[in-house]
């Protein structure tokens, strides 16, 4: 960890989902956290623990009821915040890829660059091809998402985010929808990004990845952060009973 101001500072955020006819769901209760430049934060926890809501709040896909989120000095939760501008600096990789179905792999990378960053087509093409090579599918540039395997689609999605030069990358259960044989490759790619110094917040069920790649692990349950620390302390010496029981179920 460095002494610089963290890239992501989350302070006391709360979020309640009100579904008519049902008791309100407190997805986030006073959650605070921070991510330093180059740090890899892995968020684990049972489903419904609020970890995805936490991650989605970081780029404003989920609005929060109270608290504040500051990304690289810009307050996302301010009333006048330009969410679209802010999201350019926050890459997001989804469980279901969310690739543009009507665009080829290369076009998925180039279109946001030309439309949002106003890069020239040739520059966007060059960056796009380099990144497709980088994620190991340089030969699939002309394929549509529907012609690619899940693992290949997720690589395109990661490359699409990288093309925007994000300050931080968010991974929302990026391997949960993949066939078992393609999970390893995508996790390896994420580990490579982590060792290259990419600032990452990763929500995952892959404990092996968390142990290997994380600088810090946060365990969430019931919309709260229960425990947090280095992978070694959280996995080998958890202090809380809830962490222990979760880990015993999953490993």
């Amino acid at each position: 960890m460095t002494n610089e101001t963290p890239i992501v500072v989350v302070k006391d955020i709360c979020k309640t989902f009100n579904i008519p006819g049902r008791p309100p769901v407190h997805a986030l209760r006073n959650v605070s956290n921070h991510v330093a430049k180059g740090e890899v934060l892995v968020v684990i926890g049972p489903s419904g623990s609020g970890k995805s809501t936490f991650l989605r709040a970081l780029n404003g896909l989920e609005t929060i009821d109270s608290g504040s989120i500051v990304i690289d000095g810009v307050e996302l939760t301010a009333a006048k915040a330009n969410l679209n501008l802010l999201r350019q600096g926050v890459g997001m990789v989804f469980q279901h890829f969310n690739l543009f179905q009507h665009k080829t792999a290369l076009e998925n990378l180039t279109m946001p660059q030309t439309v949002v960053l106003k890069r020239s087509q040739s520059e966007a093409d060059e960056i796009g091809r380099r990144l497709l090579d980088r994620v190991g599918i340089g030969d699939k540039d002309d394929s549509y998402p529907s012609e690619l395997s899940g693992g290949q689609q997720q690589r395109v999605a990661i490359a699409r985010s990288l093309a925007m030069n994000p300050k931080v990358m968010l991974f929302d259960e990026a391997t949960s929808a993949l066939d078992p044989e393609t999970v390893g490759g995508v996790l390896d790619l994420m580990k490579e990004l982590a060792t290259e110094g990419t600032t990452m917040v990763v929500v995952t069920h892959e404990m092996g990845f968390a142990r290997e790649a994380a600088d810090r692990v946060t365990f969430m349950d019931g919309g709260e952060i229960i425990e947090e620390g280095t992978p070694d302390t959280v996995f080998d010496d958890p202090r809380h009973e809830r962490t222990r029981s979760f880990l015993s179920q999953i490993i």
Partner: peptide, 21 residues
């Protein structure tokens, strides 16, 4: 919804999302 969120995540505005996605 995923198509819209994919477009939002790369910072596209409402009009850009409509027009391109």
């Amino acid at each position: 919804r995923g198509q819209v969120e994919g477009a939002q995540s790369v910072g596209m505005t409402y009009l850009q999302r409509m027009r391109h996605v």
